[in-house]
Design a binder for these strands. Structure first.
Length: 299
DNA sequence: AGTTGTCAAGCTAGT
DNA sequence: ACTAGCTTGACAACT
């Protein structure tokens, strides 16, 4: 099992998701930001390897405005060297990589312009991973999208639009069960139609499910990953007390995490910790995980 | 230097 | 009608 945290490192003093306002867009500004973000991404990955974190989610803000019409810079060519260097480091150290485009990506939307922007945004994510020369185990995770009062049609739209995406994009795209609209069961019905792997979000499953236990959910979603997709990825979080249902914990709840490890014993997956304090919780989780695994091995 | 309104984009549910 | 939340606050104008 590889363990990781998303997008931001709070300790090393640089960010790989630095952006700026559209109103102050210029080519120079863009290039300066991307250069900074790539530099920092490399630093974060080095830090992660030193500390035992072999799973990382790259921020969607790595290249600000990449899919916006204002951006006419050929950033992929311009930064090819840096992308390759990072990609080589990732492969050399066997780091697992994911990306998670934000909520504006809705490929089953009813409006054509929303779909068009969504596809462009997905292509941007795909280009980043392609430029790093990563194989199809590097994934782009999205939700199925909106429901619009008719889930069946909404799923059919997803299936239809998926089929028209590029080959590279299709090989990287995975769907994640969400906490309000598309449960694991819904995702499985999409999977049955097009074979897309399901990234199991354990916390979302707790919020929205059809009676499957955590272990059953994990096992079932795990079967949707082919060899070329790599080890199944999953998202983990827990409820922040006092916040509304679905909001992520500020820091890792140790008791709940231990319980999670016991319930999922023997299953293999790469674990993304969606916890607000990032690597601080990842350190705690790694310590618990190692103890847990040693305990198992010593039997 | 510190504070604060605002930021490309969508959808859902709660108020 | 408006807002919080989503994977994540950070930018940038103003005091």
């Amino acid at each position: 099992m590889k363990l990781g945290y998303p997008c931001i490192n709070r300790g090393i003093g640089c960010t790989a998701n630095s952006t700026f306002r559209l109103a102050s867009y210029s080519e120079e500004r863009l290039i300066q930001k991307v250069e900074n973000n790539l530099d920092c991404l490399f630093q974060i990955l080095q830090y992660n390897v030193q500390n035992g974190f072999y799973f990382f989610r790259i921020s969607s803000d790595l290249v600000p405005f990449a899919s916006h019409p204002v951006c006419t810079v050929d950033w992929a060519s311009h930064f090819r060297g840096q992308f390759r260097k990072i990609g080589e480091f990732i492969q050399e150290h066997n780091i697992r990589i994911s990306m998670h485009p934000d909520q504006f990506v809705v490929i089953n939307a009813q409006k054509d312009d929303v779909v068009e922007r969504s596809v462009k945004e997905l292509e941007y994510h795909c280009t980043v991973l392609d430029e790093m020369a990563l194989n199809s185990t590097a994934k782009i995770q999205i939700h199925v999208g909106g429901v619009y009062g008719d889930k069946r049609s909404a799923i059919n739209r997803f299936v239809e639009r998926y089929s028209s995406l590029s080959k590279s994009l299709k090989s990287r795209l995975v769907i994640e069960n969400d906490d309000r609209s598309y449960s694991l069961k819904d995702c499985l019905s999409v999977h049955q139609k097009i074979g897309i792997p399901i990234l199991f979000d354990a916390f979302h499953h707790q919020c929205l499910n059809n009676g499957e236990t955590l272990r059953q959910g994990l096992q079932h979603s795990g079967t949707t990953w082919k060899k070329s997709d790599g080890i199944p990825m999953i998202d983990y979080s827990s409820q922040q007390r006092g916040q509304r249902s679905g909001s992520h914990a500020k820091t890792l709840n140790i008791a709940l995490f231990k319980k999670f490890l016991l319930e999922t014993k023997g299953l293999d997956f790469d674990l993304m910790l969606e916890i607000k304090d990032k690597e601080a919780s990842a350190f705690k989780a790694l310590k618990i995980l190692r103890k847990h695994q040693n305990g198992k091995e010593s039997m």
